[in-house]
Design a binder for these strands. Sequence first.
DNA 1: TCTTATATGTACCGATCAGTTCATTTGCGC
DNA 2: GCGCAAATGAACTGATCGGTACATATAAGA
Lengths: 188, 188
Amino acid sequence: MRPSKRDELVRKAQAIFYRDGFHATGMDALVAETGISKTTMFKHFRTKDDLILAVLRYRDETFRNWFFRKLDDTALPPRQRLLAVFDVLREWFEETDFKGCMFIKASAEFQDPESPAYIQSAEHKRLLKTALKTLAEEAGAADPDLLARQLLLLKEGAIVAAHMGFDPDPAGAAKLSAETLIAAQFGS
Amino acid sequence: MRPSKRDELVRKAQAIFYRDGFHATGMDALVAETGISKTTMFKHFRTKDDLILAVLRYRDETFRNWFFRKLDDTALPPRQRLLAVFDVLREWFEETDFKGCMFIKASAEFQDPESPAYIQSAEHKRLLKTALKTLAEEAGAADPDLLARQLLLLKEGAIVAAHMGFDPDPAGAAKLSAETLIAAQFGS
DNA sequence: TCTTATATGTACCGATCAGTTCATTTGCGC
DNA sequence: GCGCAAATGAACTGATCGGTACATATAAGA
């Protein structure tokens, strides 16, 4: 099993960066918690930034997989699936180790728009928007692009609210909003 | 003028932290850019964290003042003022040095809920919500608390979108959403 | 002019940062 | 059992981190 150590590193580093932040987590801390030697780390990744980028790619893939699998599992028609987005969101918020959106946090720590971490984070959101737009099209929304953007704003706002704790039920408030916005798009 | 150096430090440090991030900005960088000696800094603030906290308090005060002054200046009735929130937001996004919300970023860098920076950031959002709720009450909304929470989610989502650049016009999409949500609350 | 408070410059502290070196060890294919 | 690639541990580099020591300078008030 050749690349397993690399994968193990990415997976474990993902959890640690998510919990403690990127700048706040030193390579020595990674060594201590993962049990993987520093030598091995730098054999797989030339720099810490390279590791962070791999972590973000891994997170992007696993998160979108998890999220849309959850949506698919509802087996609802597209229009109801647009609403179910916010039930899946609530499920995420209620996880004990929920700590906000890794990409929002990454773009907060790597603000340079040229930074790979920033670019990767923006790309993650772009992919989410595209998926939502497709769903809105399948549902037959009057303006699928606008609806996708609106729902995405609600989703991001709910994540921030859940992370900062200034709303007792962000997923609920977002879902209520989504119901109204969706109803408006279908003229019913 | 006794406390002017302290104020000058807080004001300049605010701009630098906002632009470059908290962890990424060292005290030496602050010395270099503010022209204020390190000795003076540590005479006014025992630690970097203390300075950061003062910066956040300053930002909270100035931002909320700026924001609600802008709203007041529209001289619109409460219901229209709820909508004008998103015009002010757009104005903010279009500033050349816009770099997202300092408090979202602070809570991303200081994740410990016991951390003063985290607490101060959450408090900022709480104050915004209270102000929005008051406005919704004055406007005679059916459920002012819910409407305030919904509009706040839109606002936070729009800020994130503006910062990460995944929406061409976050303020516009948020305002369209707000129109629908407000109309629903007034049965018209 | 003498005092007192505030700010400055510089050199320094120990700790930690990302990243390297190198000799040793592990584990799998043959 | 042998060979080879991958992983390890520990010591080390130079730079930077937050924060301190100390001697000097500046400026306003009495």
